[in-house]
Design a protein around this nucleic acid. Structure first.
Length: 468
RNA sequence: GCUCCCUUCGUCUAGCGGUUAGGACGCUGGCCUCUCACGUCGGUAACAGGGGUUCGAAUCCCCUAGGGAGCGCCA
């Protein structure tokens, strides 16, 4: 039997990191076992499902390169099939019509709560004859005796007494099927062998198992993975920062970094932290997934992102870096080569957005020197070396890192100064702040005209300051 | 309220009856150094609490506490 897994999001929003991890686990499990990974859109909630959300989810899957072998299948295209199953259940006496009013149901719930019991439908209509002509729902007859055993792939054995369950609605008054019915039909029809999903579904599983059994269908294996919490331990939400997968792309994260981060949330392989997709496929096992929820740490994600930035091809980085400059009103196409910028900065940025930010000086003049940096480095003592280096740079023809380095180094030697005594004032003059790549590369990227222009500005600044 | 699930450094985790409780992020000290960063060497910090079982418990059992989920004509 070949392994088949699925990811089945409901299109009521973007693809968030929790869903992405569930998708990743399903993807890895299928790939590891040479099986198939299916994408299914659970859009039976006509009120809340939107085409925009479907697109957002598809886009997220594409960006993460979680490619699926089949689908996307849409549940709204399968209503005939669901209805056929419900009709079959009716014909076999596995389900019944119910016309209990909302008021009665509400009262039932209230009474149960008041009596400190779990709210459950009381099966009132099980033995009532409800005509097909009047408005009604259809309920599935849940066994009243015994219990259900789930041998969960991550939780282990979970036993739930049937007395905790009730007769759930499988077809609404408007004729549409409900979630618990549609998942069961789909997972069966699509021959899903391993249902890996969030543990918020653990409580639904016994009801679903009953439906499989009533229909005489083979059960898939279930694996319920724990939730992802925010960094304060509460349910992950927008106030924790980005939760949408696409937001991470826009913020300058690499998909391989996000995937690597996500796979380590709840899963591990000894002490290993960095995994390529191939390694994940080879090493992942659903049985090694933890039972407890974990908190999302943006800091650790950033560390991984920087790791992947450092390991990336500069040409690749340059392509991804380019759009980040728009945030700083910069068009990098008319300035230094982005590949050279990527090479110079790839060890200095945690995200591509940060890389663009710290590279802005390469493309346009800054307004003011950063106060602390200017105070420390643009002092009167720096004027002489700055003037000297300016003269030599002005007469330099080959404006590339090696000669630039030679200029600064030689001057330092001649003036018997430490490199820092010249490089730092020069850096602040050209960059506007005290941090940048090596001074030679910095000068090279800024270019000769801008460098000289900015040094002049710094000299004027020092002079103005000396006056006061 | 009821049912189910969970509980090792601040965070992610290793551990699967005998370990100085290991690694990673973060924080932090040193080194490297023209700055920042990278790299590198070190430091900080945990078995939720209480009972058992056992010669011996982070590991097995029970209770308590805390956290989460579910109890929809949502998925």
């Amino acid at each position: 039997m070949t392994v088949r897994t699925r990811f089945a999001p409901s299109p009521t929003g973007y693809l968030h990191v929790g869903g992405a991890r569930t998708a990743l686990f399903n993807y890895l499990y299928a790939r590891k076992h040479g099986g198939q990974f299916v994408l299914r859109i659970e859009d039976t909630d006509l009120e809340r499902s939107t085409p925009e959300s479907v697109n957002a989810i598809l886009e997220g899957m594409t960006w993460l390169a979680l490619d699926y072998d089949e689908g996307p299948f849409y549940q709204t295209h399968r209503f005939d099939r669901y209805n056929a199953v419900i009709d079959e259940m009716m014909a076999k006496g596995l389900a019944y019509r119910c016309n209990c009013s909302r008021e009665r149901l509400d009262k039932l719930r209230e009474d149960a709560m008041a009596a400190k019991e779990k709210p459950r439908y009381d099966g009132h209509c099980r033995h009532q004859h409800v005509s097909a002509d009047e408005p009604h729902v259809i309920r599935f007859k849940t066994p009243m005796e015994g219990s259900v055993v789930i041998d969960d792939l991550v939780r282990g054995r979970v036993v739930i007494p049937n007395s905790e369950l009730d007769d759930l609605i499988i077809r609404r008054t408007d004729g549409s099927p409900t979630y618990n019915l549609t998942v069961v039909v789909d997972d069966h029809d699509m021959a899903i062998t391993h249902v890996i999903r969030g543990d918020d579904h653990l409580n639904n599983t016994p009801r679903q198992i009953h439906m499989y059994q009533a229909m005489g269908w083979e059960l898939p294996a279930f694996g319920h993975v724990p939730m992802i919490l925010g960094d304060d331990g509460s349910r992950l939400s927008k106030r924790h920062g980005a939760v949408s997968v696409m937001q991470y792309r826009d913020d300058g994260y690499l998909p391989e970094a996000l995937l690597n981060y996500l796979v380590r949330l709840g899963w591990s392989h000894g002490d290993q932290e960095v995994f390529s997709i191939d390694e994940m496929v080879a090493l992942f096992d659903i049985a090694d997934v933890n039972k407890s929820a974990s908190s999302f740490s943006t800091e650790k994600l950033q560390w991984l992102n920087q790791h992947y930035i450092k390991a990336s091809e500069p040409t690749h980085l340059a392509r991804l870096l380019s759009p980040q400059f728009a945030k700083f009103d910069i068009d990098p196409s008319d300035g230094a080569d982005l590949i050279q910028v990527a090479i110079a900065q790839q060890e200095r940025a945690k995200t591509l957005e940060e890389m663009a930010e710290i590279s802005a000086f390469i493309y346009h003049d800054f307004d003011d020197f950063e106060e602390a940096a200017a105070k420390k480095h643009l002092r009167p003592v720096a004027a002489e070396p700055l003037r000297a280096v300016r003269d030599r740079l002005a007469s330099l023809d080959d404006w590339s890192p090696e000669p630039l380095h030679a200029v600064v180094q030689t001057l330092a030697n001649e003036m018997q100064l430490n490199m820092g005594k010249i490089a730092q004032p020069l850096r602040v003059a050209v960059v506007g702040r005290a941090a940048s790549p090596g001074i030679d590369v910095t000068l090279y990227l800024v270019g000769k005209p801008a460098a000289l222009r900015r040094i002049d500005k710094a000299l004027a600044f020092i002079e103005a300051r000396a006056q006061n």
